[in-house]
Amino acid sequence: MILVTGGTGLVGSHLLYNLLKTNDKIKAIYRRQHKLELVKKVFAYYSSDFESIYKKIEWIEADLIDIPALQIAFKDVSYVYHCAAFVSFEPDKYHQLRKINIEGTANVVNLCISHQVKKLCYISSIATIGHHQNPQQLITEDTIWNQDDDNSVYAITKYGAENEVWRGTQEGVDAVIVNPGIIIGPGLWHSGGSSSLIKKIYKGMPYYTHGVTAYVDVDDVVRAMVSLMQSTIKNERFIVISENLSFKEFQDLTAAALGVKPASKEATSIILGIGWRLDWLRRLLTGKRRRFSKQMTKSAKSITKYDASKLKNRLDFEFKPMQVSIKETCQLFLEDLNREAKDPSGR
């Protein structure tokens, strides 16, 4: 029996579809009932028989910090894909991030130990890997994390979650960690995650930066996770990225695929500095969620290039080119947009 946490997320929903091709015994955890419709939506991209495929999943309502509910979910489970996480870069969400990402992962690891789970796959982030002083030097799995750096609250808690997984490996649980870049894929356009980038660019993003980071298609993330779980590889981490692109390059490719105007104004350091301060003030005056933090401005300017050679060599793995991934994802976005325009009710 396989258990997937975070089954209603971008990675979780695509992972479930992949797993159901070859395995009927799948459990998945969800927190909100309405999110289950998003899973069906993702399945519908790939199969007209999505309803019958979806019905094969044994859904369990549980929270990562609700141990009694998790106990029920772990019954008869041999393999676990831990995809659930709280994603936020808002500094005032730090304690909530710790609760879900670190404490929640500790609970999952402890249950893996007590239920003698054979193998655990944890989806982390490239945010938990250190950086080089030389921006042109490729970052690998061996690049050391600097805890004294000005890391985002999200990165800090995902790093703490990784430490819980490594603790589990010392207590008898075989595990692999995947560290993907920004994940591109269809379905969760309104979630606020990486999929919402497509929606934001469609609506118009006037500013760009020359910062560089790594991107990867959601299907490649899923294939890497499943391949690692099915292999004899254990207690290692793997960077999962297709290409390093500047934010301008990504925005230009996406705008072209959507048929909209690309960003035309560079967000200079001065503009970014004013931006995050105004956003802080808006939060103070209105109580609305932060959209732009100091750490986000730093990332927007940083040149960080990652190397996925370890995964490529160990699994003979080939990635989908990002131009193809962006084009495919944008096509599905436009189809959904057209469908919503014809039937706003979503029927």
Rank of each mutant, 00 (worst) to 15 (best):
T213F: 14
S196V: 06
I198C: 07
V178T: 13
S227C: 08
A161V: 03
S152I: 08
V173N: 04
M225S: 15
A161H: 11
E164I: 12
M229E: 13
V165E: 07
V222Q: 09
G172V: 10
R223I: 10
Q230C: 04
A175N: 00
Y202D: 06
Q147I: 13
G192M: 11
P186L: 07
V222L: 11
P135Q: 01
V216H: 05
P180L: 07
V173R: 05
L188M: 08
L138N: 02
L197D: 02
G172Y: 05
K200M: 14
G192N: 08
V226L: 10
S195D: 12
E164R: 09
I177H: 01
A214H: 03
Q170F: 12
S194G: 01
H190V: 00
L228E: 12
I233Y: 01
Q137M: 03
Q136H: 12
D220M: 10
L228I: 13
I184C: 10
L197G: 00
D148P: 07
G204Y: 01
A224Y: 11
D174F: 14
M205E: 11
P186Q: 08
G187T: 07
Y207L: 10
V222D: 07
A161D: 04
G193R: 09
W189M: 10
P180G: 04
Q230R: 13
G192I: 07
A214E: 08
W145F: 08
A175I: 07
V218E: 05
I183E: 02
G192K: 13
D149G: 12
P186W: 08
S231Q: 12
V173L: 14
Y207W: 12
V178Q: 02
N179E: 09
M205R: 07
A161K: 11
I144E: 14
Q137V: 04
V226S: 09
T169P: 10
G211T: 02
S152W: 02
Y207M: 09
V178H: 04
D220K: 06
G211H: 04
W189N: 10
T209Q: 03
T213Y: 03
G192L: 02
E141W: 03
Q170A: 15
K203M: 13
D149M: 13
Y208Q: 11
G187N: 01
V216N: 05
E162T: 12
A161S: 01
Q137A: 06
A224N: 05
P206H: 14
D174V: 04
N163R: 12
